[in-house]
């Protein structure tokens, strides 16, 4: 039986009807599993794409990071879709439209906030025309941090949503994400192209070259005394 966030079951008329027929429980359980499986792996995405994150969202649909491999289809109409991906800053002028489009989507529906503008407003948070996070307007299921998040992180976020959808259908509520521990960082779904053919010695040479530049950071941190490292005294000021 499917439940929503608060553990309340969906009042779907189909379940009531099926309960009236004895012996159908086995069939409905199998049917439920089939429905869970299909719902999880065919999430249709409605892109509420407003700004920079939209470009990176397009990249996630393009060839290097292919969102189709997750069974997700991008449809620019709310009435066909299960998931709204809010990619970009939402302004006061746009927020009523977002709300309206969200209400046009059929139940069950989910929302992904992609990028720091959709999550919290980022550095536009305090500006007169920007709403501080999309979760003040619509309920958000998954947050994908970044400015903008890399295209493969969109896949990770979609994977998290799939887990959540499946747990919901089994009547469970998923635990919240904590901060990722250092040794359990989520691996990107697809390796970056630069990583594969990058020589380890190149990284070493780059680090050495940046130290030679003497641009504040690295050299200062390596050579300075602990007191000045904590930012207490500026040499030029004294």
């Amino acid at each position: 039986m499917a439940v929503d966030e608060s553990g309340r079951p969906y009042a779907h008329p189909l379940y009531d009807t099926l309960d009236h027929f004895p012996g159908l429980s086995l069939a409905t359980t199998s049917l439920d599993r089939l429905l869970s499986w299909s719902a999880t792996n065919s999430l249709w995405i409605f892109p509420m794409a407003t700004s920079c994150c939209a470009i990176e969202f397009m990249t996630s649909a393009a060839n290097r990071v292919d969102i189709d491999q997750m069974g997700a289809v991008i449809r620019p109409t709310p009435r066909h879709c299960d998931v709204m991906v809010v990619a970009g800053t939402i302004t006061v002028k746009m927020a009523p439209r977002v709300k309206k489009l969200w209400e046009q989507m059929p139940e069950p529906k989910w929302c992904i906030a992609m990028g720091s503008c959709a999550i919290s407003g980022d550095f536009y948070r305090d500006i007169y025309s920007v709403i501080p996070g999309i979760d003040t307007v619509v309920p958000v299921d998954v947050y994908i941090p970044g400015c903008p998040p890399n295209a493969d992180q969109v896949l990770v976020g979609l994977k998290r949503l799939q887990e959540k959808v499946e747990l919901h259908r089994r009547g469970l509520v998923p635990a919240r994400d904590g901060r990722p521990e250092h040794d359990k960082m989520i691996d990107p779904a697809i390796g970056r192209v630069t990583d594969a053919d990058r020589d380890a010695s190149t990284t070493e040479q780059q680090l050495a070259a940046s130290r030679d530049l003497g641009l504040g950071g690295n050299s200062r941190r390596a050579s300075d005394t602990p007191s000045s490292r904590q930012g207490g005294v500026d040499e030029e000021a004294t």
Binding site: V92, P96, D126, I127, Y128, S129, I131
Partner: peptide, 17 residues
């Protein structure tokens, strides 16, 4: 008019912000 100096940058605009 938001770009006047007398207009606060974080002026609220209920119910949206």
């Amino acid at each position: 008019h938001p770009l006047r100096k007398s207009y606060a940058i974080d002026t609220p605009h209920p119910p949206w912000r």
